[in-house]
Amino acid sequence: MNANAASTDQKAFMRLPCISTLVDFVPSMVYHLGEYSRVEQSFDDIEKVWAYNKDGIFAVLEFVRKVGCKILYAGSSTKFGDGGFGRSASPYAWTKASNTELVMNYGSWFNVPYAITYFYNVYGDREIQTGKYATLVALFKEKMRNKEPLTVVSPGSQKRNFTHIEDIIDGLVLVGEHGYGDEFGIGSEEGFSILEVANMFGGDVEMLPERKGNRMTAEVVTDKTKALGWSAKRTLLDYIETLRNSDWNS
């Protein structure tokens, strides 16, 4: 190995978070939820995506392997997008899909107990509502509040299963306590196109050009989560009506 290669390897190693220096106790389980989570933006942010999603998952898996606890990993429903082709449609989708395989391999290689969940378009309080990382429902709320057109990425027929954050949390706790293995999807059975959501808000629509990585559909994989007793209890339409009643200020 030449000196330049050794230096590069050392720098890469030093980027890895040293979790054992931050956690001074042995947890019964680690919920690994904190990764980069934007599809279209991930093309421009690929260095961040790699650092957060690839370096991060290795550090966390090494930690749970060494302390001997369970990991619950939050995968991405993009893995199931467009009949499975969505898993490689963007840097974000690929890192998340390949991370689920690494979690399963750690289970096989090192007997690390794990559960893998998949979120479907989470909405609710404290969403990012401005800037390039804004989420759709929060962005539409902000635009309605400011009396601006609702921007919809073409073609607008792409379908999403919007799921309230409190339903997501209910599912996470349930799967964390009782679930083992893969495919614990946490998603509402109700699916809406982006144009349908814009119509629910009721504002004028401004169509934007198509973007790379923007899947059209994603299979809802919730059977194993439902078998534990979970179901979505909140609806997107009710949430939008709550926002409307508050003049888009809640």
Rank of each mutant, 00 (worst) to 15 (best):
Met216His: 04
Val49Ile: 06
Gly156Asn: 03
Ser154Met: 07
Glu166Pro: 00
Asp44Arg: 00
Ser20Gln: 12
Leu174Arg: 07
Leu208Asp: 10
Leu139Lys: 09
Val26Gly: 03
Ala97Trp: 05
Ala218Asn: 13
Gly68Arg: 08
Tyr52Asn: 15
Tyr106Trp: 11
Ser250Glu: 08
Lys143Pro: 04
Tyr118Arg: 09
Lys212Asp: 14
Ile194Thr: 06
Val197Tyr: 05
Thr78Ser: 14
Phe85Gln: 11
Lys70Met: 01
Arg87Thr: 03
Leu243Lys: 01
Tyr36Met: 06
Val26Leu: 12
Phe63Ile: 08
Gly68Ala: 03
Thr151Val: 15
Ala89Glu: 02
Phe85Asn: 06
Val173Met: 12
Asn249Ser: 12
Gly68Ser: 08
Ser154Gly: 11
Gly181Asp: 05
Val49Cys: 12
Ile165Arg: 07
Gly68Glu: 03
Asp82Met: 03
Tyr36Leu: 09
Asp182Tyr: 15
Lys79Trp: 02
Arg15Leu: 15
Gly202Asp: 02
Gly83Leu: 05
Leu208Asn: 10
Val26Trp: 00
Pro91Asp: 05
Gly185Val: 01
Val122Lys: 04
Glu196Trp: 01
Thr78Gln: 08
Leu236Ser: 05
Gly181Leu: 08
Ser88Arg: 00
Ala227Asn: 12
Asn111Cys: 11
Gly191Val: 11
Met29Asn: 04
Thr100Lys: 10
Lys66Ser: 11
Glu177Trp: 00
Ser98Phe: 04
Glu206Ile: 03
Lys70Pro: 04
Gly83Ala: 03
Ala232Tyr: 08
Ala97Ile: 04
Ile116Val: 13
Glu127Gln: 14
Glu101Thr: 11
Thr235Ala: 01
His164Val: 03
Tyr114Asp: 02
Arg38Tyr: 12
Gly187Phe: 00
Gly56Asn: 06
Gly107Thr: 10
Ile71Ser: 02
Asn199Arg: 14
Ile168Ser: 02
Asn249Trp: 07
Ala218Tyr: 12
Val26Lys: 11
Thr242Leu: 15
Asn4Met: 13
Phe184Gly: 05
Gly124Leu: 08
Asn245Thr: 10
Gly191Tyr: 06
Asn146Ile: 01
Cys18Ile: 15
Tyr106Thr: 04
Glu166Trp: 06
Gly171Trp: 02
Val67Asn: 06
